[in-house]
Simulated scan of single mutants.
Amino acid sequence: MYYNIDDILCEDHLVECRLEVDLYKGIFLDKEAHIEDGNLQRGHVMKLPFWMAKIMSEQEYDGIQLVQVEILEIFEDEIQKHLDADPTIVNLKQYSPYYYQLGFKMADMIPNEIRLEGFRGANKLRETLIETLKKRSIQVIFQLVQSKLEELNILTEDEKQNFYLSKGIKLQYEKWEQRLTRRQKNDIPNKKLKEL
Rank of each mutant, 00 (worst) to 15 (best):
P97V: 04
V90Q: 03
I110M: 03
A85H: 13
D77P: 01
K135S: 06
F119D: 00
Q101A: 13
D62A: 08
E78Q: 11
D77H: 02
F142A: 12
N91Q: 09
A122C: 13
L92M: 09
I138E: 11
Q68V: 04
V140H: 07
F142P: 01
Q94S: 14
R136C: 04
V145Y: 13
K124F: 08
I110G: 02
I74Q: 10
V69W: 06
Y61F: 09
Q101M: 15
G121S: 14
Y95L: 10
Q80M: 15
T128Q: 07
R126H: 05
N91Y: 08
P111I: 01
R120K: 08
P97C: 11
T128I: 14
Y98N: 12
F75L: 08
Y98P: 14
K124R: 15
K93D: 06
I114Q: 12
E131N: 15
I64G: 02
T88F: 05
Y61R: 09
A107I: 03
S96N: 15
F119G: 02
K124Q: 12
I55E: 11
N91R: 11
L92G: 08
I141Q: 01
P87R: 03
G63T: 03
E60C: 07
D84S: 10
Q59F: 06
E117K: 11
G63F: 00
Y98K: 13
Y95W: 09
S96E: 09
R136W: 00
S96C: 13
I74D: 01
S96Q: 05
I55W: 06
Q65C: 13
Y100T: 04
G103A: 10
D108P: 09
V90P: 01
M56F: 07
R115D: 08
H82N: 05
Q143F: 10
L66H: 00
D77M: 02
K81T: 10
T132N: 01
Y99I: 03
K105C: 12
I79G: 01
F142S: 15
L92D: 06
I89V: 13
D84L: 09
Q143S: 15
H82W: 03
N123I: 14
G103T: 02
K134V: 00
I110R: 05
D84F: 07
K134R: 09
F75K: 04
R115H: 09
P97Y: 00
V69H: 08
G121F: 07
R136F: 00
D86Y: 08
Y100M: 08
E117Q: 10
I71N: 09
A122E: 12
I71F: 01
V69R: 14
G121K: 14
Q65I: 07
K81G: 03
M109H: 04
E127F: 14
N91I: 06
E78I: 02
I89S: 04
S96L: 04
D86L: 11
T88S: 12
F104N: 14
R120G: 15
G118Q: 11
P97G: 07
A85V: 04
Q59D: 06
E78F: 07
N123V: 10
E76C: 11
M109W: 02
L129G: 11
